[in-house]
């Protein structure tokens, strides 16, 4: 194992941990499908960045940022979540993205390629993951109370709407970070699947978040090992490992 591979593994594990932590709230908020499909939105952003010869992560960040603000706005303004609308928007992004992404990069952008992660991008992931952990920890009580009861949270003076926006922006950030590793089709799964697995096993929120983080880390690390050994794309490998955790957790689900 060379230093470069160890560094990538470390960076990937951090991204997995941050995804698992943020995902734990996403699953409780019943926004799993949104979280899962949100990564599709990154594709047109990356395509445009590639065409302009800018780092695709920047394009992904921008596209996800806009999508997240859109989702937040819809969530604030409507009583019933317009699922179909969000689904159609995500699929449209994917379709447009596939059309405009330059052919040679398409496979990599869709499914991720860990070997293409640069040192600078690695450092970006480390810095962003730390930011995600600190900010999420700071807002976690308010966020959780807002999920339990928005009325109760608001009656205590918590700015639920602002907290939700901060949270969703962090989700956009973590998905942008994962795009290089897992590709735009599957990064969202790393936010949702470890958390869904953790929910099957946990009784308390502390244990739930811890398990979700652990599943996130293990999915990335084991998945990258398998991908490297088998010479396959890292995205599907990581997501399938995460789904493996989910299946096992489902079998042992508490009643």
């Amino acid at each position: 194992m060379n230093t470069n591979f160890a560094f990538l593994l470390f960076v990937g594990a951090l991204a997995g941990a941050a995804s698992g932590y943020l995902g734990s709230f996403m699953v409780l908020k019943r926004m799993s499908l949104v979280g899962d499909a949100l990564s599709h939105v990154a594709l047109p952003g990356m395509a445009i960045a590639l065409m302009l010869s800018v780092n695709p992560i920047l394009g992904a960040l921008l596209a996800l940022g806009l999508a997240v603000i859109g989702i937040w706005y819809i969530g604030e303004k409507s009583e019933i979540y317009p699922e179909a609308l969000v689904g159609i928007f995500f699929t449209a992004s994917l379709a447009i993205g596939i059309l405009i992404t330059p052919e040679p990069e398409l496979l990599e952008v869709l499914f991720g390629n860990i070997e293409k992660v640069t040192g600078l991008e690695g450092i970006l992931v480390i810095a962003a993951s730390l930011l995600i952990f600190v900010v999420t920890k700071l807002i976690s009580n308010k966020l959780a109370l807002g999920i339990v009861s928005e009325d109760l949270a608001k009656s205590e003076g918590i700015k639920v709407s602002r907290i939700n926006l901060i949270y969703l922006l962090l989700v956009g950030l973590v998905i942008a970070l994962g795009v290089k590793f897992l590709g735009t089709l599957l990064t969202g799964a790393l936010v949702i699947v470890p958390a869904a697995a953790a929910k099957n096993l946990a009784r308390a929120i502390a244990g739930y978040q811890m398990l979700s983080i652990v599943f996130g880390i293990l999915s990335v690390v084991i998945g990258i090992f398998i991908a490297t050994l088998a010479g396959i794309s890292s995205g599907p490998a990581v997501v399938l490992v995460a789904i493996g955790f989910f299946v096992v957790s489902y079998i042992f689900k508490r009643n």
Partner: peptide, 26 residues
């Protein structure tokens, strides 16, 4: 300073949050 006791909470049985954790929000 207002204390509000809502009519009910819509918390699923499998929602991973204990009474202790809920009270610690406060």
């Amino acid at each position: 300073k207002i204390g509000y006791v809502p009519q009910k909470l819509f918390v699923a049985k499998d929602f991973p949050l204990t009474v202790a954790e809920f009270l610690r929000f406060k």
